[in-house]
Amino acid sequence: MTEQMTTTTSAATTCDPAVRVTKSLLAYGVIAGPLYVAVSLIEVFTRAGFDPTRHAWSMLSNGDRGWVHITNFLVSGLMTIAFAVGLRRVLGTGAGARWAPRLIGGYGVSLIAAGLLRADPGLGFPVGTPDGPGTISWHGYGHFAAGAIGFSCLIAACFVLARRFAAEGAAGWAWSSRVVGVVFGASFLGLTAGAGASWSLLAFTGAVLLVSGWQAAVAVNRYRRASH
Rank of each mutant, 00 (worst) to 15 (best):
G105M: 12
D120T: 01
L123K: 06
L111Q: 12
A113L: 14
L116P: 10
I112S: 03
H139Y: 02
P133S: 03
I112C: 09
G115C: 12
A114S: 13
G134D: 07
G134F: 07
I112M: 06
A119Q: 15
G128L: 04
L123M: 05
A113T: 03
L103P: 08
G106M: 11
G105L: 13
A114Y: 01
P133R: 07
P101F: 11
Y107G: 15
G106Q: 11
V109S: 04
A119K: 14
L111C: 08
V127A: 14
H139L: 08
G108M: 01
R118A: 15
I112N: 03
P126K: 08
G124T: 11
G106C: 09
S110D: 08
A114M: 12
R102A: 15
Y107C: 14
G106S: 14
A119V: 14
H139D: 10
D120F: 05
G105I: 06
G108S: 04
G108Y: 04
D131G: 07
Y107E: 10
R118H: 09
I136P: 00
S137G: 05
G108H: 01
S110R: 03
G128Y: 04
V127P: 05
A114R: 03
I112Q: 01
P101N: 06
I136M: 07
G124H: 05
A119H: 14
G132S: 11
I104W: 15
W138E: 01
P101H: 10
G115D: 13
G128E: 06
F125K: 02
L116I: 13
G108N: 03
L117P: 04
I112E: 09
I104F: 12
H139I: 02
Y107I: 09
A114E: 05
G115F: 07
G124W: 05
G108P: 04
G106I: 06
A119G: 06
L111V: 07
L123C: 02
F125Q: 00
L116A: 14
I136W: 00
S110L: 02
D131I: 13
G124Y: 11
S110K: 01
W138K: 00
L111H: 10
P130R: 06
V127C: 02
G108V: 06
L117E: 12
I104C: 13
G115N: 08
G128H: 04
W138N: 04
A119F: 13
S110V: 04
P130M: 05
P121E: 08
D120H: 03
R102H: 12
L117N: 13
S137C: 07
D131E: 14
P121M: 09
V127L: 13
I112G: 09
G115Q: 06
P126M: 11
I136T: 13
A114K: 01
S110A: 15
R102S: 13
G105F: 12
P101V: 09
R102I: 15
P126V: 10
V127Y: 08
L103E: 10
I112H: 00
D120S: 09
P121I: 05
P130S: 02
L111W: 11
G115M: 08
L123N: 14
L116H: 08
Y107H: 15
R102K: 10
A113C: 11
L123V: 05
V127T: 15
D131Q: 09
S110I: 07
G140C: 10
G140E: 02
P133V: 03
V127W: 06
L116K: 13
G134T: 03
L123P: 00
V127N: 03
G132F: 03
